[in-house]
Design a protein around this nucleic acid. Sequence first.
DNA 1: AGATTGTTGTGGAACGTTCCACGACTGTTT
DNA 2: AAACAGTCGTGGAACGTTCCACAACAATCT
Lengths: 361, 361
Amino acid sequence: MGTISLLPPPNLTLMASLTTSAAQRRRAGRKPTIHDVAEAAGVSKSAVSLAIRNQRGVSEATREHILQVAQELGYRSNVWARSLVQGRTGLIGILLQDLGNSYHRDVTAGVEDAAVQNNLRLVIGHGRRDAKRLQAELDSLLALGVEGVVIVSSWVPPHYLEKVGKRVPLVVVGRLPYRVPGVDTVANRDEEGAKQAVQHLIGLGHARMAHLTGSSRPAAMHRRAAFSEMMRRMLPDVDPQVEGPEQLEAAIKYLVFQIQQEKGAPTAVFTQNDRVAADLVGACLDAGLRLPGQLSIVGYDNSSVCRMLRPQLTSVDQPRARMGELALEMLSERIAGRAEDRHITIAPKLVVRESTTTPRD
Amino acid sequence: MGTISLLPPPNLTLMASLTTSAAQRRRAGRKPTIHDVAEAAGVSKSAVSLAIRNQRGVSEATREHILQVAQELGYRSNVWARSLVQGRTGLIGILLQDLGNSYHRDVTAGVEDAAVQNNLRLVIGHGRRDAKRLQAELDSLLALGVEGVVIVSSWVPPHYLEKVGKRVPLVVVGRLPYRVPGVDTVANRDEEGAKQAVQHLIGLGHARMAHLTGSSRPAAMHRRAAFSEMMRRMLPDVDPQVEGPEQLEAAIKYLVFQIQQEKGAPTAVFTQNDRVAADLVGACLDAGLRLPGQLSIVGYDNSSVCRMLRPQLTSVDQPRARMGELALEMLSERIAGRAEDRHITIAPKLVVRESTTTPRD
DNA sequence: AGATTGTTGTGGAACGTTCCACGACTGTTT
DNA sequence: AAACAGTCGTGGAACGTTCCACAACAATCT
């Protein structure tokens, strides 16, 4: 602590005339601006502006010259200044509830592709499966000035969605608890997916079936309800077993126990999603059950784990990339001014793999 | 605490000549600005600016009043205007090569947490496992004005890294082909992970071991080299089998075939990562092999699939969140001015599960 | 020749904020 | 009473860009 900082006098060189201003700026280590380019190229800043945006108003010769000078100086236009004056940013946000999840990855890929088409830049927000964080992240996106947001989560509270939806266009990928005015949605028809799963199982000869769910979010509830409805219609004599979402783990254990006892246990299970299915597969194998011999299992999402598990998982596929594309298209319509709400649903499709077979005799 | 200061309304309703301008702006559908708030609160824009930034220069009473008016108007400060004048954005980017991957998710979570601490906002870029796209995405982040970038990928070409690194601080999470001047790195010690894996297997009694790799990226190459080195040191008489990265699928098939033939086949495999391990597990099970009885398998990454597979996968864990935190800390040091390069390595740790056991006799 | 129409280019005024120098007022010290 | 220091607040000048009205000049039409 002995040394005292001898402050080097800031040497105010008086800025004698203002001629050197641009040069000084550059010397100060700042990034080159449009003024620097203009000065170096011997034209006005307006000319540079036109040139770099490829607008008419400058001759081809000067444009080339300007571009070359800009290149030499390493000039890059300042997006902030531009969007400040233009009043638009060309940014759109996508709010994910969970990175590290192939469903979200594929939806995002679809949104990305469509964004490129629409000349929009994508900013990803990461909510981490937590309503508070999702809200904070959404705020963050808004503060960045996105012109619209695609939300891939059903965890953002609807009243918050409604509030935000008034300030900026919002499209939700997935089911909401109820329709929120001003907010568009794109979702797969969970009922149809559940129906296909049940029909597939019935087609294989199954009758005693169970549904296993780990969530009471809207999508899960629709699958569950559709399962019950289908069973009532197709197999009115059978009492379908529906378990969860609380105590899912215990439900899985009990199911395995039932099968080991052989007394009227389900021969097939339709699960709410692949994660639950994977847990079930694990529990069955740990208990020494033969799969799919002793139990047929259908998942939902057709995620990347389906092909990793043994037996490979039969699962309902949602056209994820397409849903992402649709979401972005709806969003850009909104940004362009559409006022009425739209709700698109899209058909899912069962992908049959190894985890389903005819019931044990 | 009892006394409440009834704010004497500042009521400077003069400004006669300029009265309608702000109101007009608001009517035009634009978002409210600092001027609107100032007008509505009867103070100057400077006062509003101070109030919302919680700076001293306004009394507590007026600050509260201003904040309330701002709240009512739904005012949100415009980040670009701010960063335009301040010359900094408070944004940092993170470039991921693959959403939908638990490794990346966890690293990102670490970066996020540290970013909050450092009062920086995170922007996620998504490269999709493709050098071209990664570059485009990195450009995109730079255009947004990030002050630094954390890159979670080894796919960005080093020469490009070097070029970009001159304009903005860069930290790479993971191994690079070689040290790039100006670019910091944080990585796990792959050699140590490989060593732990081999030691674990030797401890179980294995001697004939193989390594299976699906990549020639630096991290993979280090694991592979360390595997060979360990084998040479610990079991000089055994010829270790190293397969891949090309024709990985064929190598897996051949390995399974060897084991079925029983003649001097490996009894354990250390794989480059969990994905390869999962493929191997699947192939073994499909061929009817008993796992881990006929083959012990060790993965790398301790990703979420480890617990989904049966047998559950023994795998080398990298402290992913911690690596993310470190990356962000290094980045903010750089932004603050550190000039010399730093390279941090961190110890991985083997997590033993079900996929490893004593060799078949 | 004069009027009309393009083309190429210019300087100043936004955009919404922060920063800075300074003013008005209220106490406190000489 | 004068001088000083603090607090609270103000208006104007940036920041880097685009937009707009208009100027200079050339080419074309009456």
